[in-house]
Nucleic acid binder design. Structure first.
Lengths: 145, 145
DNA sequence: ATCAATTTGTAACGTTATAACAATTACGAC
DNA sequence: GTCGTAATTGTTATAACGTTACAAATTGAT
């Protein structure tokens, strides 16, 4: 049996929108999609996003001001908080696909870099822009579809 | 002799504002500071920022939507384009100070992570949030000054 | 001088994010 | 049950960040 929440579960709706695609969505794109469900204000969306971020169910792509579902490194959702050291994203500049990766040695390089400046790291943002395999194969640097 | 430009050199004014501080400035903060010099429109500021970014004189901190002068890894300005693989920033969450670092092995980790996903990297964003040496020393996690 | 190309300025708009406060719901105490 | 309180959600407005479209000025070649 699935629970039927008394209150509207905005976070659940957003998670559902983000699941099943590697494309990031902005808060306002999500708002548009949730309008039919009765969500009309940015605040509502941002609050739900905040919760999803805190619980590690989604990630924010800083360079796009957009959000993706957490899918883990190999497509399996995992259970880390967002901003954890050692995770990163590739972002295709042509098709917008985002993939997540986790790399212990990347994490140690980041910690070393911080330590070199006597900096105490808490979270890190790693975003690699370029072309995904599919787009790189389609001929060099064409415009967006 | 210094050149006296016929046109106002907005980029130069911005570079001057950003030089001499490790604190990032947003485009609109810069606009405020340039108002006395006759700059009144965001467009003007963004165009100048674009040029400075392209020439590698400044960097954009994605997680702050703000800009800092390029100071190189050890405080010496250097000559790379922005977004180059292998450079990164530490961002103090308490005092906002930003420091730049360059790390060849970080770069190779990023390239390896991209390669693992058959991704063709073009540029990368590495931003470490936490506490700078000074703020970490002042007792744990106080509020901002 | 005149023209085209480039750069800069202006005005308006679009997008992203937050603040302040009101209304609703959940839930335990009584 | 109903009262009181805390937590959540909704509403409205506004702040912060960024772009578009087009007009005006400057440059430099003809």
């Amino acid at each position: 049996m699935t629970e039927k929440p008394k209150r509207r579960d905005t976070a659940g709706l957003i998670a559902a929108e983000l699941a099943g695609t590697a494309k990031p969505h902005t808060a306002y794109e999500l708002l548009e999609r949730l309008r039919p469900s009765g969500v009309f204000a940015p605040t509502t969306v941002y609050r739900a996003l905040e919760k999803l971020l805190a619980s590690g169910k989604i990630h924010r792509i800083e360079s796009l001001n957009a959000f993706v579902a957490c899918r883990g490194a190999e497509g399996a959702p995992h259970d880390h908080g967002h901003g954890e050291l050692g995770i990163g994203f590739t972002v295709c500049d042509r098709c917008a696909a985002v993939a997540e990766f986790e790399d212990a040695s990347l994490q140690s390089r980041i910690e070393a870099a911080a330590a070199a400046g006597a900096f105490v790291p808490r979270s890190s943002i790693v975003e690699i822009h370029g072309l995904c395999a599919a787009c790189a194969g389609e001929g060099p640097a064409a415009g967006r579809p």
